[in-house]
Nucleic acid binder design. Structure first.
Lengths: 190, 190
DNA sequence: CGACACATGTAACACGTTACATGATTTG
DNA sequence: CAAATCATGTAACGTGTTACATGTGTCG
């Protein structure tokens, strides 16, 4: 969903073509999430199919220009108006990993937490370095970096919290199967 | 990737069947991310295709049981050993939205930020309520809730930071196209 | 000329969601 | 019996990734 609307947003500034859209998208987000050029074209095709963009006939200069339609502008406005909710976000792989490490026996949860903490600390340092080096650069991707910094910091705080919880529950609550009660079933097979 | 490995983790505890796997997955994560039953079966099929699980012939009681293979155990161990990196995460839609709201003209960025802040505050309250009501429940999904709380708090801090940045740059740096230099191309069309 | 960036696509695949079909079992 | 729950699938679709094919323009 992000790319679809991202391209729409860039097209609101005027007709653009595929390569240009990738360039501007990466300029705006600091190439934090490199955008595959192939996907730009497939996404444009789908946007055109859905009537949110159309091929701009005039002024191509040899390139395939696209322009946003009224339906596209409406859709884009809706995107900017609607907040990103928790539910709309993808599953958090780290949370799932730790939850399951706790749920199944034979996993050294502390080791998992510590390795993750190390890794997150390292990327936090890397991000801080990036931020420093990119000072007075674009404001938009400055904010993107800071978004990741805030996220990484929260993650470290959470990991510390997890370790504290682990220590507190060491022995108090062992494994605790909690295993989804398997319903009995009386020999039903033919 | 999370679900695939999640199912593997649950299967390490012993042979299970589809419905049971969904139940245990949701028990471990507090049904925070409801797991579609259809996907459990397709994922199991793929895991079997890749040799990470196999159908457990014996003791089915009328259900299709699956068990983890050695290759599956290896893969699972690798999952727990490898930290979740920033790069492996999906694009952050909120960051992209704000970055593009800044990059293209005609978007009321402050309004976007304020709406988002309102929404995030609300889900933060909801999460806090959930946490309180679920006290002394399962430790694993207690941690999942707290993961989301920490994330929401970080998001609010970031949004505040964004507003401060916006105020500071009001007028200083207007729009700043920064628009991916379009290469000239001399009338190349036939 | 040859290498490289620009430019546009297509194909195959992985993952996820929704919806549908089909039965067996349990329970009011 | 009827409805709900348990249980296993399949089909269609959306989105994203990787890789490949193909051609033009620029520059050393």
């Amino acid at each position: 969903m992000s790319i679809k609307h991202g391209l729409l947003a860039l097209l609101q500034d005027g007709p653009k073509y595929g390569y240009q859209l990738r360039g501007e998208f990466e300029a705006a987000t600091g190439a934090t999430w490199p955008l595959n050029i192939g996907q730009v074209y497939t996404t444009l095709t789908r946007l055109e199919r859905d009537g949110l963009v159309r091929a701009a006939s005039h002024e191509g200069d040899g390139r395939s220009m696209y322009e946003i339609t009224d339906a596209g502008r409406t859709e884009l406005a809706k995107w900017f108006e609607t907040p990103v909710t928790r539910e709309s976000r993808p599953r958090d792989e780290l949370a799932i990993k730790l939850a399951l490490a706790l749920a199944v026996p034979g996993v050294d949860v502390s080791a998992v937490v510590q390795r993750q903490r190390m890794s997150t600390m390292q990327s936090l340092q890397e991000l801080t370095r990036l931020k420093r080096n990119s000072a007075q650069g674009e404001i938009s991707w400055q904010l993107v970096i800071e978004s990741m910094i805030f996220g990484a910091e929260a993650e470290i705080r959470w990991l510390d919290h997890c370790e504290a919880m682990l220590l507190r529950h060491r022995g108090t609550q062992r494994a605790e199967p909690q295993n989804y009660q398997v319903p009995d079933q009386q020999e039903a097979r033919s």
